[in-house]
């Protein structure tokens, strides 16, 4: 049983959270807990950002380039965007062979 459950059962035994005072107490406990959890998420999130920046620097991946011949119908930028989109959607398995305007 964790500390909060112990506190819950102890307080529940004492006051059983009945009536206005019980509801107010529950509001205080609830709002404080939600704030604490989200503050923890923020601080731990910031710590994670620092950890990742320091110990897991991004591996430089070469962006997949359009490796097909018939790209005359679109410009190089568009062709690369389409190639990247296909790469993302297919998890790297897909390959663009040609692009046609329809």
């Amino acid at each position: 049983m964790n500390s909060l459950s112990i506190l819950a059962s102890a307080t529940a035994n004492a006051q059983e959270f009945e009536g206005l005072s019980g509801a107010l107490l529950l509001m205080a406990i609830g709002m404080v807990t939600v704030f604490i959890v989200l503050l923890l998420v923020i601080y731990v999130g910031n710590a994670l950002i620092m950890f990742v920046n320091k110990f897991v620097p991004e591996e430089t991946k070469e962006a997949p380039k359009a490796s097909f011949a018939s790209v005359q119908s679109v410009d190089a930028v568009t062709a690369n965007v389409i190639a990247q989109a296909v790469n993302t959607l297919t998890g790297g398995k897909g390959k663009v062979e040609s692009i046609k305007k329809i």
């Binding site: 709002m31 939600v34 704030f35 959890v37 998420v41 923020i42 999130g45």
Partner: peptide, 8 residues
């Protein structure tokens, strides 16, 4: 991340 507090 700071904006997450408004979820509380």
């Amino acid at each position: 991340l700071k904006l997450a507090i408004f979820g509380a």
